[in-house]
């Protein structure tokens, strides 16, 4: 009695088709069907941000999106944020600033921070904290995460100016 649906979406700039049940979340589809396990499940009800992805330019929690809703959408996951060469400045700064301990929250934070910096290249500390309030980290107390995001913003601004 399976009622699987064929879905086609652009995931990390690649067109992907998959079949899923309507009750499967986008998070489940990414992880179990497409084996993109970078998005993490921390709560499965929108409270932790570990599953964050960017959908049509908007930050969302993939555990609160149905896989079928992705039909025709463009989705960027942590896997898609990594450039062809080297690392994204956010990734680089998270490493340099030791902004991760266990690292389970890291993909969600980097995706969320990317969505922030895409909109606001020069956020204040308070703006970073507000934007990231939907992402829980239990290891770091956020101190080094906030610094890494501010550092990455500075790098991106400098790169842009140089270009």
């Amino acid at each position: 009695m399976s009622n699987k649906v064929l879905v086609t979406a652009t995931i990390n700039d690649e067109e992907r088709s998959f079949v899923c049940e309507p009750r499967q979340s986008l998070l489940e589809v990414l992880r179990d069907v497409l084996h993109l396990t970078g998005a993490k499940e921390g709560c499965n009800n929108g409270n932790c941000g570990a599953c964050a992805v960017i959908m049509n330019g908007v930050l969302v929690n993939s555990c609160l999106v149905l896989g079928v809703e992705a039909n025709g959408a463009a989705i960027t996951t942590i896997e898609g944020i990594t450039p062809k060469e080297g690392l994204h400045p956010l990734q680089q700064k998270f490493l340099e600033d030791a902004a991760l301990q266990c690292g389970i929250c890291t993909p969600g934070f980097i995706v969320a921070a990317k969505a922030l910096l895409d909109k606001n290249p020069n956020p204040t500390e308070q703006e970073v904290r507000y934007w990231l309030a939907g992402n829980l980290c239990r290891c770091t107390g956020y101190d080094k995460i906030v610094r890494a995001v501010l550092d990455a913003a500075a790098t991106l601004r400098a790169e842009k100016q140089a270009a």
Binding site: G46, G49, M55, V60, L64, A112, G134
Partner: peptide, 9 residues
């Protein structure tokens, strides 16, 4: 309401 990712939806 919620956080930014909730407000996206």
């Amino acid at each position: 309401i919620g956080g930014i990712a909730i407000q996206g939806r």
